[in-house]
Design a protein around this nucleic acid. Sequence first.
RNA 1: GGCCCCGUCGUCUAGCUAGGUCCAGGACACCGGACUUUCGAUCCGGUAACGCGGGUUCAAAUCCCGCCGGGGUCACCA
Length: 519
Amino acid sequence: MATVRTRFAPSPTGYMHIGGMRTALFNWLWARHNEGQFILRIDDTDQERNVEQALIPILRAFRWLGLDWDEGPEVGGVYAPYFQSQRHLFYDQSKQQLLDAGQAYHDYDTPEQIRADRQAAKKEGRNYLNIRRSLELTAEQIEQYELEGRPSVVRFSVPRDQFVTIDDAIRGRVEWDCSLICDPVIVRGNGSPLYNFATAVDDGLMQITHVIRGEEHLSNTPIQALIHQALGHELPQFVHIPYVAAPGSKEKLSKRKLDKYRKNPQFKKMFDKADQVLPQIGLAGSRALDPVMVEYYVRMGYLPAAVLNALARLGWSLDDKTEIMTLESIIDNFTLDRVIKSPAGFDPDKLISLQTHWIGQLPIEDKIDGCLAYLVKAGLIDAHPDTAVRSYISEILVAMGNRLKIFCDILDHREFFVADDQLDYDEKAFEKRIRKTNAADLLEKFSERLATTETFDAESLEKLMHDFVETEGIKIGQIIHSVRVAVSGKSVGIGLFDCLALLGRKRCLIRLDRALKRL
RNA sequence: GGCCCCGUCGUCUAGCUAGGUCCAGGACACCGGACUUUCGAUCCGGUAACGCGGGUUCAAAUCCCGCCGGGGUCACCA
């Protein structure tokens, strides 16, 4: 059996689409599962801008997830070049082959003519089929046109008396009536090839065995199949996987609908989080960074393992139970027959839950490193923390437990890093837990206890609290919330005694005092 | 509108190829309870789905037909 060769062919857009990443992942997975090759090819036939620049975020996304490519940019390969913009020779050759065989022709129709044809078809309510006027031209007329320098495109000549059939690995047998298919333009007036043509030429030349792509490409598959056929290529196995839909919808996830997504309840959380975090770490607002891009997850502090796990579960499953999977396990078990047919809505909540799992698996040192980056960027600690700082963070992380889901969540606990006089108070919490409850008296007394107690670890502090409550003859709820707000500025957070112990006696006393003075 | 694809809890999905063990399983979310300290933490529990209508059959989520619904795509973009 031939070696499995899959490919992902991104257009250099300057960012990596999360749905595209999922497609890339499936291609990579299938190649790795079969010990075949995964090729990265850059579809830049229509690129005016700086391709190299636009490619950086895409390659970075691949590297971040640990998806390596056997052939492609930077690594080369026997089928080089891997940029379509550098493959004109091949396209010219194939174009000529088609032209010579009468399977393609120069079309001299003007855009105006074509537009008129389309409108006429629409008006009459029939399917638009291009009119092959240029085929009626005499040799003299063509010569005349060429002399005039009249522009022409090259169209592939669809055999209108046929049916094209493909046997898709996921959809099964799909058939199209060629008499309904327009002759596609394969080469522009300026000589550059078009997607459907370049793709078929390259997939054939590069010996691609499996074309795994989003279902949205199903409709241009007959054209590619026809071109393969005309070029004498063996047809690759087509694998049309369901596209990734926006959360809670069946619509394809699209970068153009960002404004709409900001209102999507699930996506909204992600946007809000970015709005809150990014300014703190010196990045512009989330306008430049959104959850449709892989970059978002990188910058927010998600784990590759989590994103990989979530992406793999979008349209694919191992069995009826397994949710948590390592990349190795996914590779081992990844088969095409377990890919689902219907669109898969991207679920941010599921991602978070997977992320929570994977971050929980991380060795503490890695967790520290992950959080450190955010603390440094936010200016809360020095760039080169000593071991004391590291172990302080370590203790905080232990106390946080699964409250830390994403690395940037560490910024929700600024209270452990800011100077005592810089601590911000949540005014609503302060009002409710301190001002309204007339907590001043109790806080003062509690403060005295803290000042005199011998040991200041979580356990003894808890004991101290219970003693205090008993001697004062109050309920614990009457004091504990006030203390929390006084020392941390907020009403929620890690366990109170862990919080007090972490801050240490001195800071607790200063903060308690400061809170009292605000009254 | 033409062509094509899809349709199981709110969401991701298992089951459908070889009909019964499925009054449909798991996970996330949600709701509730517990933890005589909060919580977006932890533990426990609960609600919740085979789009509709016909067939075939002793038996259908699973097979057949029709309908309805959703989506993708119709460029000298990829």
